[in-house]
């Protein structure tokens, strides 16, 4: 006998899980809520970590920032795994068709030599900076507190890997595997890249995960991404390098999207307490000048004698952004 199960109207006993009822009331919860809130264990842990014997596995004390409720740091994009991968899959499809068109039609050969060289000198070595961003964000995922912030940091880490791979692909399109060797050489010993490598390595030894979030996601990306995907991209487009713009479109969209998420985290953490605000502001001031110094020689290569103006603009836009987030910088 075939039973038509659809025709039965059943009143559910409850709408969602206890902890969500406690937090939001007994109503249907979104997939983001069900997949993010309170799924990290909180109180009871069996063994002290051999790698951090003074703390427990998931510990609120791994940062100077303090929150009454760490789940206040929610992701405005409401990314759970499915929503995240589906969003990125759509973007990668667009990126893929750009790359394919450029590769199939040999469009890279139409790029003026001078622009192409700028792309090789400035964009391709950035794959290493992206790898640093991947490391910082995977650290936060491992040692941060509360899934609403650790989860998007892993997505961000994977995005950084993806961006590093798109930058790699740009190198391959423009000049084949040699481009990657040249970029690595520049990264390891080229004078223009040493301040940046020094800065990135400094971020790799930080302990405080929220400090990494500020130094990497807010400050470094806040200055670097607009420089590359806004200012430099405008130059490429204006001077016949549209093919390069096509290959960085993913990054441009991605940095605008992720900046909104990063802003929401900083804003919420700063509004939590005067102590948080002071600490965040201090970090921003410190890392802003370090980042600016690291960017200077690269901006020089990218913009020549306009470099100082571009950097000054970037910093003032960045300061305005921080002010809106409630920081005193």
């Amino acid at each position: 006998m075939q039973i038509d199960l659809r025709t039965v109207a059943i009143k559910p006993l409850r709408h969602t899980f206890d902890h969500l009822v406690e937090r939001f009331g007994d109503k249907s919860a979104s997939r983001y809520q069900e997949g993010s809130y309170n799924i990290q264990q909180e109180h009871i842990f069996h063994y002290r970590p051999t790698w951090d014997a003074d703390r427990v596995l998931f510990d609120k004390k791994r940062t100077k920032i303090q929150m009454k409720d760490w789940y206040a740091l929610k992701d405005p994009r409401q990314y759970y795994y499915g929503a995240y991968t589906i969003a990125r899959a759509r973007q990668q499809e667009a990126a893929e068709s750009s790359f394919e068109m450029i590769e199939d039609r040999g469009l890279a050969e139409l790029i003026p030599a001078e622009l192409k060289q700028i792309a090789l000198d400035v964009l391709v070595p950035m794959r290493h900076v992206e790898w640093g961003g991947n490391m910082g964000n995977s650290y936060i995922t491992a040692y941060g507190y509360g899934t609403v912030i650790t989860q998007p940091c892993l997505y961000h880490a994977m995005d950084h890997l993806g961006v590093a791979q798109y930058l790699t692909r740009i190198g391959l399109v423009l000049d084949g595997p040699d481009a990657l060797d040249a970029a690595k050489e520049a990264w390891m010993s080229g004078a223009a890249w040493q301040p940046m490598r020094h800065h990135v390595e400094n971020l790799l030894v930080l302990d405080d995960w929220f400090e990494i979030f500020v130094a990497q996601n807010l400050v470094l990306e806040g200055l670097l991404n607009p420089m590359l995907y806004d200012y430099l991209d405008a130059d490429f487009s204006a001077k016949g390098g549209t093919a390069i713009s096509m290959m960085t479109r993913f990054m441009a969209e991605w940095s605008a999207e992720t900046a909104k998420w990063i802003d929401a985290q900083i804003k919420t953490a700063a509004a939590e307490s005067p102590e948080n605000k002071e600490q965040l502001s201090a970090w921003v001031k410190h890392y802003r000048s370090a980042t600016r110094e690291a960017l200077a020689p690269i901006a020089q290569r990218a913009f020549g004698d306009k470099a100082d103006d571009v950097l000054a603009d970037l910093v003032s836009e960045f300061n305005a952004r921080c002010a809106k987030l409630g920081l005193a910088v």
């Binding site: 059943i10 559910p12 006993l13 409850r14 709408h15 969602t16 899980f17 206890d18 902890h19 969500l20 919860a29 997939r31 069900e34 997949g35 309170n38 799924i39 990290q40 264990q41 909180e42 109180h43 009871i44 759970y80 795994y81 499915g82 989860q151 892993l154």
Partner: peptide
Amino acid sequence: IRHAQTQIHALSNYNKFYEGFHAGAAHQIE
């Protein structure tokens, strides 16, 4: 994290109609 979430999402529907699921995926294991 995909596995944790897809499991919670799949079983969320059972939670609406049956007992024993309501504590969710982290409270009881501790």
